[in-house]
């Protein structure tokens, strides 16, 4: 007889997974795949890479479910965010920096002329500004601004103090605001 595991919390699902429970693993993947994909995408800016990273993270969990130790006090999703973030950082280190499309040159040479930028160009520039941020600032922005994670939780996920996290968000937004004003023109913001 099939037992419905969807109502179980993460801790109980992980107990099943430790005993080889494939159904429990499927429930956990269905519960979290999209959420962890979103944060991976924000950090690596590529759909394929983000999907691969999330898959790799879940497969690590499947092969070594004891890596998550509930007795250490961390919630499963907080711990798993850390796993995904670390995989994204490793991935970014291996990857070359993003190049700017050729049609961006005009905008680069004449900052402030927002009328010259179409939506696609604005989006590409913004993505480039975000990817140019230091790792920690990008992570803070992705977690707190794009994912709406609380500051306390984000600090825990990133393994930094609350002050350090808040400082990272402020620096990230200040840098981005300057660049946006410079390249998109004062009328944009």
């Amino acid at each position: 007889m099939d037992v419905d595991l969807t109502h179980l919390d993460d801790t109980l699902l992980l107990q099943h997974i430790r005993q080889g429970g494939r159904e429990a693993f499927a429930v956990l993947v269905n519960r979290y795949a999209d959420r962890f994909y979103r944060i991976a995408y924000r950090l690596v800016s590529s759909k394929d890479d983000a999907e691969d990273i999330v898959q790799e993270a879940f497969l690590k969990l499947w092969r070594r479910p004891k890596l998550w130790d509930p007795s250490k006090g961390a919630k499963f999703n907080t711990w798993f965010y850390k796993v995904v973030i670390n995989l994204c950082v490793d991935h970014q280190r291996k990857k070359r920096p993003l190049g700017l499309p050729q049609d961006m040159e005009m905008a680069d040479g004449n900052p402030g002329h927002d009328v010259l930028l179409d939506d696609h160009q604005r989006q590409s520039l913004l993505d480039r500004f975000i990817s140019d941020l230091p790792d920690r600032q990008r992570q803070a922005l992705a977690l707190c601004f794009y994912e709406g994670v609380s500051n306390h939780e984000a600090a825990d996920m990133m393994g930094v103090t609350l002050k350090a996290l808040q400082s990272s968000i402020m620096r990230a937004k200040t840098t981005l605001k300057k660049k946006v004003k410079l390249y998109f023109g004062g009328g944009s913001i």
């Binding site: 993947v29 983000a50 999907e51 999330v54 497969l59 604005r122």
Partner: peptide, 18 residues
């Protein structure tokens, strides 16, 4: 402006693939 940042949804079968 920040929310204009590009975002692509994952494939609908991502969970199944994993």
């Amino acid at each position: 402006v920040l929310r204009e940042s590009r975002y692509e949804d994952p494939d609908p079968d991502l969970a199944e693939r994993i």
